Amino acid sequence: MEIEVKLKQLLSERNMKQVELSNLTGLTQRTISELTNNQIERLPKSTLCKIAEALEIEDIRQLIDFKK
Rank of each mutant, 00 (worst) to 15 (best):
M1H: 07
M1F: 03
E2A: 11
I3P: 05
I3L: 15
I3M: 14
I3D: 10
E4R: 15
E4Y: 13
V5T: 09
V5A: 07
K6A: 05
K6P: 02
K6Q: 12
K6L: 09
L7G: 08
L7F: 02
L7W: 04
L7A: 10
K8M: 11
L10F: 08
L10Q: 13
L11S: 10
L11Q: 10
L11G: 09
S12W: 02
S12M: 12
S12T: 09
E13A: 14
E13Y: 08
E13S: 15
E13M: 12
E13W: 07
R14H: 03
R14T: 01
N15W: 00
N15D: 09
M16K: 14
K17Q: 07
K17L: 05
K17A: 05
Q18V: 00
Q18C: 01
V19R: 13
V19Y: 02
V19H: 04
E20R: 13
E20K: 13
E20W: 02
L21I: 02
L21T: 08
S22G: 13
N23D: 14
N23Q: 15
N23T: 05
L24I: 06
L24H: 06
L24M: 14
T25R: 13
G26A: 11
G26P: 09
G26R: 15
L27T: 08
T28C: 09
T28V: 05
T28D: 11
Q29L: 06
R30T: 06
R30G: 02
T31F: 00
I32V: 10
I32D: 04
I32A: 05
I32W: 06
I32E: 04
S33V: 01
S33N: 14
E34A: 04
E34Y: 11
L35Q: 04
L35A: 04
L35T: 02
L35S: 04
T36K: 10
N37P: 00
N38C: 06
N38K: 13
N38E: 09
N38L: 08
N38G: 07
Q39F: 00
I40Y: 01
R42N: 08
R42V: 00
L43H: 03
L43S: 04
L43R: 05
L43T: 07
P44L: 10
P44Q: 14
P44C: 09
P44Y: 09
K45I: 03
K45C: 08
K45Y: 05
S46I: 04
S46Q: 13
S46P: 00
T47I: 03
L48K: 12
L48V: 07
C49N: 15
C49L: 15
C49S: 15
C49T: 10
I51T: 12
I51D: 11
A52Y: 06
A52P: 13
A52I: 09
A52Q: 14
E53M: 13
E53S: 15
E53T: 15
E53A: 14
A54D: 14
A54Y: 11
L55C: 04
L55A: 11
L55R: 07
L55P: 06
E56N: 15
I57M: 12
I57A: 11
E58A: 06
E58S: 13
D59C: 08
I60A: 10
I60H: 01
I60N: 02
I60E: 08
R61Y: 00
R61E: 01
R61N: 12
Q62C: 03
Q62S: 10
Q62A: 08
L63T: 01
L63D: 01
L63A: 04
L63S: 02
L63C: 03
L63H: 01
I64V: 11
D65S: 11
F66M: 06
F66Y: 02
K67I: 00
K68A: 07
